[in-house]
Design a protein around this nucleic acid. Structure first.
Lengths: 243, 243
DNA sequence: CGCTTTTTTGAAGATGGTCAATGGGTGTGG
DNA sequence: CCACACCCATTGACCATCTTCAAAAAAGCG
């Protein structure tokens, strides 16, 4: 099951030969259920395996000296949130579950052996880590150069796009189990500003937020406000948004 | 010469067999001199080759809809600022020279063939792109969660550390050919704030800035203000800073 | 039902952005 | 060689925005 999830996710961007798929299927996984807020990998650790998200959402973050927390990215079914640990020994951030989640862990050596045997699999995972980096670049831009409203709109657009591409949600919603505090910690803004920005998006009838789900009433409007241009996500088959 | 520069840079983090080095030496490069501000790769382009910085500094950035510009990262001798283009066809940002610079360009197919032949070379470049991503993560944190003074101090520490690790500068300086406007565009702050923040760092006798060089008077003080912890750069042999 | 967590609101204060003007330095052309 | 133009750095002042502090309301949970 974890292999299939990883395969589907990688095939979103890469093409495999039959033997590549076989190699993936031969991987041995350990499944782990995690509760909201539970740490999956800790800053400073040297993991021996790599994580694939099976269910739910996980976040990467760093604790700051003054007790605050900065979220760096969010990950959903099929993502490998700590793929970099394959080549960078020590974690430079932590990974935790946002809502309740399930992850699968595969031993690094097993994966590396597969990469040598089937370079295409390595290239696919590499590609995945490069898209990861593209998402970070966009986060730098988003959090450095956009005002709160645009910043939040952009994040919602990104998560929706990625979840839709992964076939996890319908055309008008995001699975979003964060608290407002966590959302603020991702966007680099205070809880109060976060709350008021959400209200503004609601007043503009762009979104609703209930029950760990954000409902998008007006994708196009949201994308415009957030200056969202999906090309940085490097989809092989870009999603189209009618209306 | 470009191959040697790339090799030295990669060997900072990875170990090669003799044949790996031979493979690197066999690469054919095209050299290009660039003036300050000259674009090297353009957002939206589909480069057929990858860039290695030979001399000087280059920056990655994106132009924003309102005419501003957000710098994402800076790169020095030995860096591959657009390695992601090996697997992500379309550029999601631009690359330009900061001061006068020289770059070498190597055809993608040539490199990919080498990766299949000598996986260790591919892994080394992969590792390089992962450190790149780690730098982006830190930039997200820096620009989202730190106040101007800390933010600027952190950037200076990072650049100094990387330049020292690459043996490009002495123990107390940074090659820094940016204008204040560009520095502000990197840190997500206005020109005025940028200028006043520099002055504060000067008043605190932490730095001087003249002639495209920043002089560090007090590395430890700067690192403390910037909350700089070099571990995210994943050096194989961490630099030590006396005093 | 009581306790905790999360969301919401109000108000005051700090900080950074914008606007506008000045000065220094460099390069060019007359 | 000087005048002019341009770019970059610097300064002052005002204003908008965001943060902080504080508290209340609402929601979730055992």
């Amino acid at each position: 099951m974890p292999s299939t999830i990883l395969q589907n996710s990688l095939e979103e961007h890469s093409d495999f030969a039959a033997q590549d798929v076989e190699g993936l299927k031969s991987l041995i996984w350990e499944i782990r259920q995690v509760r909201p807020n539970e740490e999956i990998v800790r800053h400073g650790e040297r993991p021996k395996g790599a994580v694939v998200v099976i269910k739910g959402m996980v976040g990467r973050y760093q604790n700051l000296p003054d007790g605050r927390c900065q979220f760096i990215s969010f990950h959903m079914t099929g993502d490998m949130p700590d793929a970099q640990s394959l080549f960078l020994e020590e974690m430079d951030h932590s990974v935790c579950a946002i809502g309740p989640a399930a992850v699968a862990i595969v031993d690094h050596r097993q994966l590396l052996r597969l990469f040598e045997l089937r370079p295409a699999v390595g290239f696919a995972v590499w590609r995945e880590t490069l898209i990861d980096a593209a998402i970070f670049r966009e986060a730098v831009i988003n959090n450095s150069a956009r005002a709160p409203l645009a910043r939040m709109a952009h994040l919602f657009c990104e998560l929706h796009y990625r979840q839709r591409a992964a076939k996890l949600v319908d055309e008008s919603s995001i699975y979003f189990p964060l608290t407002q505090t966590q959302l603020g910690d991702a966007l680099g803004m205070s809880l109060v500003t976060t709350n008021r920005t959400i209200q503004k998006l609601r007043q503009l009838e762009l979104i609703d937020w209930l029950d760990s789900h954000i409902v998008l009433h007006d994708w196009k409007g949201l994308a415009e406000i957030g200056e969202f241009d999906a090309r940085y996500l490097h989809s092989k088959r870009p999603l189209v948004f009618p209306r």
